[in-house]
């Protein structure tokens, strides 16, 4: 029997050439949260964050919704993004909102990096060459894993 289940879904739209809008949903046996995050490029700065708590555990939890405003101005390129979000949004607000916000931030960076990959792959472009060309636009991903390791 399934004793616990959590699903997170993130979709990213590009309403303007310099704007990413991520919508995230987290649903598990305990919590139900939604989040909308807008990020502007080329700085990758959060310009808006709005959340909704559908299901939570304590009468204090909804006080975490306005804390999301503390995410405005945060750059996705910050080296300590995870600890910053966990501290500012998680500890000061709700750690599940922080979790979903980090999921949205990561999705936006992946979206930015892979934006041209489907097309490039069809043209037979090598992943390494694609990464070399694309990483200067999404420098936060450089050297983050074996596939994006640049000498």
């Amino acid at each position: 029997m399934l004793a616990f289940s959590r699903t997170k879904w993130v979709g990213v739209e590009k309403p303007a050439p310099d704007t990413y809008l991520a919508h995230g949903v987290l649903e598990d046996n305990i919590y139900g949260l939604e989040l909308d995050v807008t990020v502007k490029t080329p700085e990758y700065k959060i310009t808006s964050a709005a959340g909704k708590m559908r299901r939570f555990t304590t009468p204090e939890c909804p006080r975490a919704v306005p804390v999301l405003q503390e995410a405005i101005g945060v750059c996705l390129t910050e080296a300590n993004l995870i600890s910053l979000v966990n501290r500012r949004i998680g500890r000061e607000g709700c750690r599940h909102f922080a979790n979903l916000l980090l999921e949205c931030c990561d999705a936006i960076l992946r979206c930015a990096f892979f934006e041209r990959w489907a097309e490039a792959k069809k043209q037979g472009i090598d992943p390494g060459d694609y990464a070399k060309e694309r990483l200067p636009l999404v420098p936060a991903l450089k050297n983050t894993c074996l596939a994006l390791k640049m000498e």
């Binding site: 029997m1 399934l2 289940s5 699903t7 979709g11 990413y20 979206c111």
Partner: peptide, 21 residues
């Protein structure tokens, strides 16, 4: 507007007959 990117992540926990999970 269409989606430029989508991610779906699911985590589940199952109790095993030997008591482990």
């Amino acid at each position: 507007m269409y989606l430029s990117y989508a991610r779906n992540k699911h985590a589940g926990v199952i109790e095993l007959p030997d008591g482990n999970i």
